[in-house]
Amino acid sequence: MKTSFIKTITLAAAVATSAVSINTQAAEYSITITNLTRGIYFTPILVTAHPDSASLFAAGETASTSLQAMAEGGDISGLVADLQAVSATSVENPAQGLLAPGAYTTTTLNTDGSPGNTQLSVVAMMLPTNDGFIGLNSAYLPTQVGQTMTYDVNAYDAGTEANDEVRGSGAPGEPGFPAPGPVGEASGMNGTGINASVEGSVHIHRNVLGDFSATEGVSDIDATVHRWLNPVARVTVELVSE
């Protein structure tokens, strides 16, 4: 589906083209990401195969500024640049916009010439949340042609923004959540804001609170629509050829 984005999305292929084919290991993976939730949208998804030595985040640690930008506003450009620096193979925004509740997207990732990119990570911001994101962190890629691996993905909180649950900005460090298109339509307004503070480190998201009014109350999130129980996403990856 097509929707306006919160942030400028750097176009895909930037990373893919940087990986020059040397015809050593031409491993092609087919990757499907499904949004399992009833009411949460995913912002542009970042799918990446990277070396074991790198990771996008670590639970219990402070989020990088790049992860913060993704989790608070859906901007994956910083993470993409970080990944380029370690010669990762990435696919940006395979769903070409928001991935709706219950929807899925399939993409192909080719680690041609980069046999060291053995770890799969997938992240995207969850809307409406302040800094919630889906986080598949350094999962193993299949190693045999035809082999499929399935990962259930949990919701994390980047720990960089207070979960006040009201509409606001997607810019890092600014309060509130962005509410593009269908997210805005399903969210309330005029919430007074939940008294919350920045947590400080990446952790499993404790879920949204929400309220029961679209026009008042403490939260602009709808308790009956936007709550979730983990997992929030399912990632299947098949090694198609090598």
């Binding site: 009833r38 509740p101 629509v225 129980l229 929030v232």
Partner: peptide, 9 residues
């Protein structure tokens, strides 16, 4: 809210 199976919240 939508005629589709999802995870339960």
């Amino acid at each position: 809210i939508a005629d589709q199976v999802t995870m339960h919240g």
